[in-house]
Design a protein around this nucleic acid. Sequence first.
DNA 1: AAAGCGTGGAG
DNA 2: TCTCCAAGCTT
Length: 358
Amino acid sequence: MRDQTPFSDARSADLLHWYDRHARTMPWRISPADRKDGVKPDPYRVWMSEVMLQQTTVAAVKAYFLRFTERWPTVSALAGARDEDVMAEWAGLGYYARARNLLKCARVVHQEHGGVFPENHDALLALPGIGPYTAAAISSIAFDLPETVLDGNVERVMARLFDHHAPLPAAKSALKDYAASLTPQERPGDYAQAVMDLGATICTPKSPACVLCPWRDPCQARRNGTAAELPKKTPKTPKPTRHGIAYLARSAAGEWLLERRPEKGLLGGMLGWPGSDWSDTPTPAPPFHAQWRDLGAEVRHTFTHFHLYLRVEVADLPQGYNPQVGQLIIGKNDFKSNDLPTVMRKAYELWVEKEALG
DNA sequence: AAAGCGTGGAG
DNA sequence: TCTCCAAGCTT
């Protein structure tokens, strides 16, 4: 399938030369110079970074990556972690199915692969939370296998390099073919990171810095003046607005009543406040009968596919309250708002602002 | 296979 | 304020 022409070899060599001079440093990356000295990346760290980077910016990932790899230095250490510890450590990073699958994957690698990541694209693809992009990324970056990564950066770079106007996501396979035609047999790991760095720093979505681009000469969109309008995308449907109520119950001793959310669905597996449904007209659902007081302000939060206005009501948690199924009481010293997903943390912070302080 | 799934930063 | 979108995966 791969078209290894002298043309593509020259293109990839140009990009690798640029990468040798401009590669950014990241906590999970081995510099091109160190790679040439024979330093090999740790597949565990490559996998961890790639999962965190799914739909997430490098800036947001860095601190999480450092905390995870310090707390769980190996895949077997992670496999032995408690679910709630991993979910709490992931809190705030979003797309929480990634954390659930991260742990599942670690346990499969530990138990079924002897704690060693398989050096094989198809075996990687079969692991939880590893899809086409991540399998190719680990294959190339960790194992220097000539697989083709296709992420949002590569899609944009290929759409412009070949001036391809068909809209995403339908154009994905065509763009993958273009990308595959350029993937070199030499240094495929550095090459994969180079294309993505190019997209992240030069061939950016808005106002690309074409004058600095190592591919400015062959770029057909630049020649045709269409770079800034590529890639085309099918328009996305507008987000609806939903409403809800969160119930914050606190005991005199400073304990909080929380819930572990079900594994599937929004914020699955994470801690949260008891609450109503989130809908056009939510049905009140206080966890117990009491005089609930409205904080008089709303949390505003936007998820992937809807806006949420969340009212916050508070009450005193009765002495000796008996937690229902799925509920838990967390003591003052064990409660950390950073263990909550962001929308739930915002509700807590509203309470701090309205009651604890003001 | 289209929809569900988070969050924060940039413009 | 609002829109876009960032190294996508699962069902």
